[in-house]
Nucleic acid binder design. Structure first.
Lengths: 345, 345
DNA sequence: TTCTTGTGGGAAAGCGCATTCCCGTTGACA
DNA sequence: TGTCAACGGGAATGCGCTTTCCCACAAGAA
């Protein structure tokens, strides 16, 4: 990648480097109009494209914002990414992308890479975990983040702070009221569902999952209902599918209707997909609710009850957009938790 | 963003800048082990993170790969993005993201921004168009790309070349056999469907849409079937929804079964969503097929007949991954085009 | 022992740009 | 007409790094 440089432009225009710089790349000092015009002409003729790297080096500010997600193809993350991207665009910056499959070690590496590129800020989406196998990774990630913040970087984390990260200057957590919303969902479901509840959760130690489980249980308790059984599985569609397979027999042989809370939408879809070929229909034989309100899944049938999360706004907030309202979700009861009239107790 | 510099490390280790550089940031010359160790210790103690901007400036190669999509939250694009991301990771590079909503003018700007950052290569996903309102934008985009290529950049375009771009060195188009695949789909559908066909297409001038329409018509013709009527609408879910609304009455009042080909999956979903509340059921009252085989939509019911496209591979290919097999799609007939036994003619 | 060759560290020259500081010019004012 | 401030352009420095070139030294050959 070579291209014409500012000094070439300056030479062609017959002015100094300084003047050319002032004309082309926004400075507080505005050279005279005739000179400016000459410089612009020269730049145009040469097809001058300023070297952002060099500018960044000279100004020590890169205009970059780093985004860390588990998987960019996951609709949850891509929705957040859209928000980050929009915020970046408004701030006239560009976003650097890193996918890590959720491994803290990879995230640490990504942070280091962003730091190397001198990104002005870093957004970490994707749930934190306290699983023992992630312990060392988390510590290293926290250390890397601390260093980045100490060097003047801004960090926005979605959901939960990185374990062990000190609350340094520039460290910012976008709170997502998972627990409250899950409690709200449980309360609403408890109002119409008479039978037992069951939770299909992610692995223990995953904050997002744990919060939603805790909230749901609390909501049930507040409604005077017994605690729900919890099934642990993968935090994705495959996990839900697996859980669905395990549940099918049980649902078919039981007389009591079950209400399933899957801790996110794609897991709920997985459960449903596994149940269907077994002849278990939603909401006829069991009901199910998810969490996130993924846009792409909104046309899914039966329409999935879930908790709406303003994912785009979350992304914007994490990217430091000041005009974005704070996160506020909402319970959305839809077809998948409707109790058929004839089977109501 | 300030951090400790190489010269600080060098001073602390008591060596020269050159030596420190050679030790820390891969060079062909390997200093003696004891010295190297000293440098590494110093770097570690200072928390040294190499400044990639400066490295890029010195080496004139940034390790960046720019990705342009219409909308990162669209599952079509996020799937491609995943592929690009993976390829980048393998090549030890980072991806820079830009969303443009498909406007050539924005794309041109994105290319310029990538060029400014001296990205090693640029991937443009998202369909090209020849609509008159895009004419000037396309020309400017082409000029910008040409300049980028002439300066040694590599560009990979998904689907169709940018209108007006000269086939300069480094310009690479990932061919997607839209027409052939659409023809294949039509052939298969013509085998089971006896009634009329209708195409819900994107706006005229959009290559991807036009190719699929043309292919489908050709497939029909080859099967001895009359040409299908074409409805033009937006190339997204909303467009499909609109078309669905317009079609509902017609389907209900006609005795002939209609087979709808929506030129992409989300449009097909939109059509279906609009039809359902009108009492038009798929595949009972009409059948429908899409294109792309979006992963998130795979659990949709009735399962959508579609054409599978290896989107991740496409992303990888566009990012210049040599180990990725060429693009080859496949027709997937599923429930949405099954002709109910009782209504077969 | 002397000359050659090879080895490895250091000095310095950029990479492309922003910015500070300097200086010549001009206009206002007395 | 003389003085001073304000203005605007240019030279030079430095951002953090890579890399070439140079040189000192040691080891091998003659």
């Amino acid at each position: 990648m070579a291209a014409s440089t500012l000094s070439e432009v300056a030479r062609l225009a017959g002015v100094s480097l300084a003047t050319a710089s002032r004309v082309l790349n926004g400075s507080s000092r505005k050279p005279a109009e005739d000179i400016a015009e000459r410089v612009r002409e020269a730049a145009d003729k040469l097809g001058y494209v300023p070297n952002a790297q060099a500018q960044a080096l000279a100004k020590s500010s890169s205009g970059l914002i780093g985004l860390i997600v588990h998987d960019i193809a996951d609709p949850y993350f891509s929705a957040i990414a859209r928000g980050v991207q929009e915020a970046a665009r408004q701030q006239n910056r560009m976003v650097l992308l890193a996918s890590t499959s959720g491994a803290p070690a990879d995230e640490k590496e990504a942070v280091a890479a962003f730091a190397a590129r001198r990104a002005d800020s870093i957004v970490i989406a994707g749930s934190r975990s306290v699983r023992t196998e992630d312990k060392q990774g988390n510590a290293e990630l926290a250390a890397e983040l601390d260093r980045y913040c100490r060097n003047g970087g801004h960090v926005g984390v979605v959901g939960h702070p990185v374990v062990g990260a000190s609350t340094a200057e520039g460290y910012h957590v976008v709170q997502v009221p998972n627990e409250e919303l899950a409690a709200g969902l449980a309360a609403e479901l408890a109002g119409t569902h008479r039978g037992a509840f069951l939770i299909v959760a992610g692995p223990e130690g995953l904050y997002t999952s744990d919060d939603r489980v805790r909230g749901f249980q609390r909501g049930l308790a507040d409604a005077g209902r017994p605690e729900a059984e919890v099934i642990r599985t993968g935090f994705n569609r495959a996990g839900g599918y697996e859980a669905g397979l395990a549940l099918a027999e049980r649902i078919k042989s039981s007389t009591e209707r079950l209400c399933i809370f899957a801790v996110n939408d794609v897991m709920a879809i997985g459960v449903t997909a596994a149940l269907r070929p077994e002849g278990v229909w939603i909401p006829r034989d069991a009901t199910i609710a998810g969490f996130d309100d993924i846009e792409t899944l909104r046309d899914f049938r039966p329409a999935l009850s879930t908790v709406h999360l303003p994912l785009e706004d979350i992304g914007r907030l994490a990217a430091g957009d000041p005009d974005t309202p704070p996160v506020s979700g909402a319970v959305k009861l839809r077809r998948s938790t409707e109790t058929p009239v004839e089977s109501q107790v």
